[in-house]
């Protein structure tokens, strides 16, 4: 066996014909995809039962690079699309893989309502703290005082604390890691696969081209060092206390792991209660393609 025969274990999960990818040097999105693929290997999940949905933006491009059933939806609509998939075929494992701008700004309403209903979706939110693909504008996640292309002297708006938001809205699993925490992130994704209900994993990720550069925070490597030095693992930390600042501490860990009935269980219970024995379970969706 020569070195050329060795395949990267995550390669079977990638559409290598689509490479090179569009992500910049030092970007963290590729790292998250690696962790995601490793979680798939680890959890031995049936890839035929898996669907990956993404929105628009840099992270939205993940849907095009993974060799899985995937859909690149309209801006902000990854969660409604995923909701439709899950309702039509409850046996599917539906992953929403998108960025902070897509999920919490233009798609913010869907995020909180999916968490409220506790739809059984696994949301991986890569948070690079700005709108990256469109040129680095202020997003709802941009920390105070950060310089962006729409805040040349620093943003004055308060930012969303996403773990706090989704916990308040009803998510049953909430975790946060950075792209430095590759093992922990892969493990969290694996845990979310086992969880029934709305799971949300935030991954803090660098955008060296637009966020780090404008704020003089160094390159991708400098950001890894920052993540390493300033991250503090606090499992079960109150999400109200995990808000981010530009250069401060990053609280990471599994914040929420609780159980409550998911939407489809609630719907089933209500149908049984109101229709009694006359209730007939809907037939399973069968894929007729070869």
């Amino acid at each position: 066996m020569t070195i050329l025969d060795v395949t990267n274990p995550v390669e079977p999960f990638l559409r290598t014909d689509r490479m090179p990818h569009i992500w910049c040097p030092g970007c963290g999105i590729g790292t998250t995809v690696n962790c995601f693929a490793r979680a798939l290997i680890e959890s031995k999940i049936d890839l035929q039962s898996l669907a990956l949905v993404s929105g628009i933006g840099c992270t939205g491009r993940v849907a095009g690079y993974v060799k899985l059933d995937s859909f690149h939806t309209t801006h902000g609509r990854a969660i409604p699309f995923a909701t439709g998939l899950k309702l039509a075929n409850p046996k599917l494992n539906v992953i929403v893989y998108s960025g902070d701008g897509d999920l919490s700004a233009i798609g913010g309403n869907h995020l909180i309502h999916a968490a409220r209903r506790n739809i059984d979706l696994k949301v991986i939110c890569v948070n690079n703290l700005i709108y990256a693909m469109t040129g680095g504008q202020t997003a709802p996640t941009t920390p105070g005082h950060a310089i962006t292309s729409t805040s040349p002297y620093g943003t004055c708006e308060p930012a969303f604390n996403l773990p706090h938001l989704v916990e308040a809205a009803g998510a049953v699993y909430v975790a946060r890691w950075t792209t430095f925490h590759v093992k922990q992130l892969a493990r969290s994704i694996g845990e979310a696969f086992q969880k029934k209900g709305f799971s949300f994993i935030e991954v803090i990720s660098p955008c060296p081209t637009l966020y780090q550069r404008r704020n003089k925070l160094g390159d991708g490597l400098d950001t890894m060092k920052y993540y390493k030095e300033k991250s503090k693992v606090k499992h079960g930390a109150p999400t109200s206390e995990v808000g981010l600042t530009m250069t401060g501490e990053i609280i990471v860990g599994k914040f929420v792991d609780r159980d409550r009935p998911d939407y489809q269980s609630l719907l089933h219970a209500q149908m049984v209660e109101s229709l009694g024995e006359s209730y007939v379970e809907p037939s399973e969706t069968v894929c007729s393609c070869s």
Partner: peptide
């Protein structure tokens, strides 16, 4: 008011400056 999308976003950036 602004919301980023190419190629319109260039005008929002010039205005904000």
């Amino acid at each position: 008011t602004a919301y980023p999308i190419r190629p319109y976003d260039t005008v929002m950036q010039y205005i904000c400056k």
